[in-house]
């Protein structure tokens, strides 16, 4: 690996200052489970690595009446080890419990999974489905961005030079809401999604009041299929509605053929996984209704 300098700022301001260093290739380091692999393989370059794990805001994990705030450096295990968060956001827990194995979950952060902007990122579809917002700090001040707008190309996110993802915010779950993330992998662990599907629904009796669906690994960025979720709104909670939404998701997918499967196979899996994710989201929604 090429030499890089290392800094470990204590404040967002200091981190933004380092990330804005002119003429330097700067990378933010949270869990390192993507970044260090990429630096080693030469897939990303850095001459300055900024460790953001000592910054208070980035370690915040707060559940209150305004919803859930997850600091960008909070590792996965802290999220699923919190029983209140598990109860409130089981769909999120689906995703954070399967990003890597136990060791990876000790380090990998939700913020890193998002910032890495991999099309296959497991956390992103469920964050999109849950309507999460990214809170960003930067030289021009703070801003927020819906998660679905955060990834712009494979490995590239919407952060401008000097900007830092501070936290992710989710609204409080509504009564009758349920969400789920499911991915298909050939092994049972330690794998990259061939297809991932995140779904959230809000049920009013036997009718969908709201729904959002997003997919992993089927497009250059995690794919928000607004039409699939919209198609459910006002429809009865039954197989026909679910299948119709799954078909929209399937048709919206633009997968490629690679070592993880052919485009045709992936498109097929989009339908299967979407259907299964919606079904699981419904089951959870019924519990909270």
């Amino acid at each position: 690996m090429k030499w890089f300098d290392y800094e470990c700022p204590r404040t967002v301001e200091a981190a933004v200052g380092l990330l804005s260093a002119p003429g330097r290739k700067v990378r933010a380091l949270a869990g390192g489970t993507d970044l260090l692999v990429q630096l080693r393989a030469g897939r990303r370059e850095a001459d300055l690595v900024v460790d953001i794990k000592e910054i208070g805001e980035l370690n915040e994990l707060r559940l209150d009446s305004s919803g859930l705030t997850i600091g960008a450096a909070v590792p996965c295990y802290r999220i699923y080890n919190d029983p209140a968060i598990c109860r409130a956001y089981p769909g999120l827990i689906d995703a954070v419990s399967l990003i890597g194995g136990t060791q990876i979950q000790g380090r990998a952060s939700l913020g890193g999974n998002l910032a890495n902007a991999a099309p296959s990122a497991d956390a992103v579809p469920i964050l999109i489905a849950l309507g999460a917002q990214c809170l960003i700090a930067g030289p021009g001040g703070p801003r927020s961005l819906p998660v679905e707008d955060f990834c712009v190309a494979p490995g590239r996110n919407a952060l401008a030079p000097g900007e830092l993802l501070v936290s992710i915010h989710l609204a409080p779950p509504l009564p009758g809401s349920g969400a789920a993330y499911l991915r298909f992998i050939p092994r049972n662990e330690m794998d990259i999604a061939v297809v991932g599907a995140g779904a959230s629904v809000v049920l009013k009796g036997n009718v969908f009041a709201a729904a959002r669906i997003a997919l992993a690994s089927v497009a250059p960025v995690p794919l928000f299929v607004a039409d699939a979720g919209d198609s459910l709104i006002g429809k009865p909670v039954d197989e026909a509605s679910i299948n119709a939404a799954a078909e929209i998701a399937r048709a919206a997918a633009k997968p490629i053929t690679d070592m993880r499967g052919t485009a045709e196979y992936r498109r097929h899996l989009c339908g299967v996984m979407t259907r299964r994710a919606i079904a699981r989201a419904i089951a959870r929604g019924k519990e909270t209704n």
Binding site: G101, P186, R187, E189, I192, M259, R260
Partner: peptide
Amino acid sequence: NSSFLDYRMPTALD
């Protein structure tokens, strides 16, 4: 797929 991630040898869970 020249990594243990993508070469996919069985894990204990498989």
